[in-house]
Design a binder for these strands. Structure first.
Lengths: 252, 252
DNA sequence: GACCTCGGTTGCGTATGTTGCAACGACTGT
DNA sequence: ACAGTCGTTGCAACATACGCAACCGAGGTC
């Protein structure tokens, strides 16, 4: 809608990957370098980018500042923190907190596991709804009409042999998740990892976010993964209570 | 330089403080609300803001994503992490890692202390050079000409009765810091807190960042604060080694 | 040491994108 | 059902951001 802003934001994405030079950027977004220069200067004034020497541009401190302000203002992140940190410390597995945003899942917190196998995820990163345990939990909590709508509107890219690839299969899975109160990602996203996830609820019982544990298959088989569910649910229940949820239905 | 971009970035700052409505924002930056709408839409496409209901706008996930990508690419942050985390765990005090950027200090990492007294700081936040221990360490490490230049170009706003207020006093303090190898902020920034800081060095002995410990005065008197210096320096030395520094001068 | 190249920087005229306006529509609360 | 509030759209006028081309300054090569 706004051309220059659009270009500037695209620039930020490029710069984020790693430090870039002026001509690089100009070519990348297909405009004259003087145009890029002007945009970068404005971004620089606001500390969104900074220069390294004369040649290279990097993201600046405003980025961090705003991001952290924003993270702080996500209430569920703060209220879930103690329970999730404890879960992470107790089990040693990687714990994620995620919420729904515009047809995808967004990770809003992460507690790194103790194993050497690192997942390619990061706070702020987005992931598909159809092949993640957190995605299933979040969509399963929506009213039926919305579930249908989402199930039919998203893509189903195949990530592994186990990935769900049709709206029908996805809806059936969501129904199961809703009934059980937790979701499994049986290596549907990455070949060597499987996950379990459960919802974190707020004062009115609405689902605010989903928490998951991710475990390498070599460390724990499917049975072992399911055995983690009670532990996970204890944590999400605690997180829910801190978020204003009360046992018997409606809270306020 | 670029008007629309400039306005958009200002919008982001406003939104960051807390969720805002359209007219609020329009009035705040003094333009018509349709203009704001268009900018917000572009920001929304890029996930820099998201809508809460129809009325409110909040920062979006791209913010977190880019910020974390950028933080990951700050090498000194990663290499200093183990040493600083250990220092924080060992002492229970708040630990900051900061670097110099455009006439100010920027916090690039923070390890929260165990006391209830919380400081108003945050990763990405900026602070003055003249009244922070990290600021002194960073400027003290620069060549004399640059030190002079900075000392005479910055402002000296008074924060507490102890704040340094003249270039001359600041330069004298810097000389002391350079000689001792560490800096003290004797309640010069906030009344009830004092800090010590020391440099983290890279392969060529250049100062990459400064690490500090901040302690409430009620918890530890000035003597007690100084007694922390050996512990701090052990940590910054360890961090320096992880950053490629070698004991006897030039590394590579 | 002079030349050459490459990348960043500047000034300028033009066209394009962006703006403000005013009218519309959706939603809320009374 | 009505009034008021707030988000949304189409349009015409204008300012703004654009691309061009020429100008620097630094690094490397012969």
């Amino acid at each position: 809608m706004s051309q220059s802003l659009d270009r500037a934001l695209t620039l930020l994405n490029s710069i984020a990957k790693d430090a870039r030079t002026l001509d690089d950027l100009a070519e990348e977004i297909g405009v004259h370098k003087s145009t890029v220069l002007r945009l970068l200067r404005t971004l620089e004034q606001h500390h969104f980018v900074r220069r390294e020497g004369t040649r290279y541009y990097r993201l600046g401190s405003a980025m961090f500042d705003l991001a952290n302000q924003a993270l702080d203002s996500i209430d569920v992140r703060r209220s879930a923190q103690p329970a999730l940190a404890a879960l992470n410390a107790r089990t040693g597995h990687t714990v994620h907190l995620a919420s729904y945003d515009d047809g995808e899942v967004v990770y809003i917190d992460k507690y790194e596991g103790r194993h050497s196998v690192r997942m390619y995820s990061r706070v702020g990163k987005r992931a598909p709804l159809h092949c993640t345990a957190v995605g299933k939990v979040l969509v399963a909590a929506m009213p039926e009409a919305r579930r249908e709508e989402i199930a039919h509107s998203i893509e189903y890219p195949v990530r592994t042999p186990n990935t769900i690839t049709t709206p029908e299969a996805y809806l059936a899975e969501l129904e199961r998740v809703g009934r059980l109160g937790y979701a499994v990602d049986n290596a549907e996203h990455e070949d060597f990892i499987h996950c379990v996830a459960a919802p974190v609820r707020g004062a009115d019982g609405e689902v605010l976010a989903a928490a998951s544990m991710s475990v390498p298959k070599v460390l724990l088989d499917y049975e072992g993964l399911l055995a983690l569910v009670p532990d996970l649910r204890a944590a999400t229940t605690e997180a829910s209570v801190h978020s204003g949820w009360t046992e018997n239905g409606k809270g306020h």
